[in-house]
Design a protein around this nucleic acid. Structure first.
Lengths: 335, 335
DNA sequence: TTGTATGCGTTATCAA
DNA sequence: TTGATAACGCATACAA
């Protein structure tokens, strides 16, 4: 079933069929109707592959994240998909498992599939192979929570400000020994979180104990083991910040196992709001932002960029965050 | 940059270039090397669109779920993606928002994009437009947790058995008034859950009170309002089963708000294990199964079907489930 | 073993 | 306003 069949059925040429489905103005009304009737009768749909071949556009966007199961990325994907779908784009998604070399391969894969653009949140900003693959692919790219040495648009949230306010809030409750468990040292998001933490200490004229910083991984398991280690110290933290939305689970597993009373013995704040934070007992104070909006903004930028309707200078969008006060934080115990 | 450029650089014809990248045996070793060198030097990658045009295969699979943010689907997608990626397939994902007419459009979209196959978990099995679109598309399809009047492979878990065992477990604790809050009446999964519940009652020679069944929606909000309604009844349930993995949050919101003591005042079981079930206080007994395996099995079936290595008769795979006993269930209070 | 030539189903250019 | 025709980049049948 091709445009040729439709043309024959409607008694016109394939060119006219093409003009009709592409809403070309120069088609007589009655001819147009004849073609539409034939399309209906035959149930023809244009072959998108052939169309892509001719137009050099697939209306397809490649998405690369470490893991689509992470609600952080699932929400971003959902927001992006909605905006893209409204504009006739389809999303190809892939999980890299946080493997940088796989990410480079995926960039090449999407390039060979002739995606029109890319949404990328890669594992390691310092891996030159990623930037190189991106440059070689020549694909318009929106980075999510990342910074790379290429000309690319980017979207993210203000992790630095959010973390600074979280620490300041804990200061206001009298906490001084605030542990930060997080990862992503080689990503903008990770660096900003640590930066915000240090900013708060510096502005308050305080110095954090170095062993309060646990910066090696964003995994739940890491949060679990580091929480145990922190709480086992002779000078242990009075508050823990879980800087990554998978980590609260690990912190809670550890505190439940060790029978630590929240917030009496320990205050907890997490970065990234989840149902777990809301419904845990006690509920957990969180740094929250609109994840769908991150995806939506990324999509909007890419759509506009592909339409040529924004200047070549890279665009940066920051989605605001806020602290949701719940019941996991209390005044630090004296003595 | 095309195969032509590579051919010129290597001093061969495009046919030879094609044979090299497709591992055709009839290529001399030295010629092969020359071509590989040229490919390397030029950094050429075959255009997948042109290749698809010629081979009538895109090595692309369309995925249609109600919402990729639902961990149920996110996990399935992840499992499927892994198996597909290993076989050179790329996933196109889309969320329908549970809108049947959008699902039909998505089926057509993926058909026009010439996906090689489909993974589908649609909202309403009774909507004839879905089956019609599927038949018209002629795409090999694997249904996930669904049954449709078409010849299609399917994957799912044993909801009937899982639910039956959950009810039997509650019987063993002395519960008689067990409420079931769930939805998906027009899906296999939903019907099986209700079937399992009724099976258990029948086998025990008991009859459930009709108002213990709340079967209108799988949403968290529905679970919230129905839990409130159930607990407000004069003859209220002593146990609630949340039959859908988004629903536990709604049940917990309601019980927390109403200050209901779990498990003293009420026992809870949920279908679909989550971090929330594990880490809530008390932890919640759950019907659990391997979600990635569901996606992986769906992918395997499709891969084999596309390779022509399975018989035309539809394949059905059932992933086993089990009940994880936690602390949300107790002996029913007498008096 | 290799090259040549054709066609996949569109869109777009050019002529009529 | 419409039709004929030439690409798009690859894979493959056929010829050599």
């Amino acid at each position: 079933m091709t445009a040729h069949d439709v043309a024959k059925a409607a008694g016109v040429s394939t060119g006219t069929v093409s003009r009709v489905i592409n809403a070309h103005p120069a088609v007589a009304k009655d001819v147009r109707q004849k073609v539409l009737d034939a399309i209906d009768a035959l149930g023809w749909q244009p072959n998108a592959v052939a169309r892509s071949m001719r137009t050099a556009s697939t209306r397809t966007i490649g998405c690369i994240f470490s893991d689509v199961r992470n609600p952080l990325y699932a929400n971003i994907i959902q927001g992006a998909e909605q905006a893209f779908a409204e504009n006739g784009y389809t999303l190809m998604v892939s999980s890299s498992g946080g493997d940088s070399s796989r990410e480079a391969k995926l960039i090449q894969l999407f390039a060979s599939r002739r995606a029109d653009g890319l949404i990328l949140s890669n594992a390691d900003e310092d891996d030159a192979a990623i930037a190189a693959a991106l440059r070689a692919s020549n694909l318009p790219t929106v980075l999510v929570e990342r910074d790379l040495p290429i000309e690319a648009d980017s979207v993210g949230t203000d992790h630095r400000g959010g973390m600074r306010r979280a620490v300041e809030y804990l200061f206001s409750l009298g906490h001084e020994r605030i542990a930060l468990i997080t990862g992503g040292r080689r990503t903008r998001a990770g660096r900003e979180r640590v930066g915000g933490y240090l900013d708060a200490y510096e502005q308050a004229g305080k110095t954090p104990l170095p062993d309060m910083l646990r910066l090696e991984s964003l995994s739940s398991d890491y949060a679990f083991s580091e929480t145990q280690a922190l709480l086992g110290m002779t000078v242990s933290p009075t508050a823990i910040i879980a800087g990554g939305n998978l980590m609260l689970a690990g912190v809670l597993r550890a505190t439940q196992m060790m029978n630590v009373k929240i917030p009496d013995d320990l205050s907890i704040v997490c970065s990234g709001d989840t149902e777990l934070a809301e419904l845990a007992t006690p509920s957990v104070t969180a740094i929250r932002w609109d994840l769908s909006a991150v995806g939506r903004e990324a999509a909007k930028i890419l759509i506009n960029r592909l339409a040529g309707s924004i200047p070549s200078k890279p665009v940066r969008i920051e989605v605001a965050n806020e602290i949701v006060l719940r019941k996991s934080c209390a005044l630090v115990r004296r003595g």
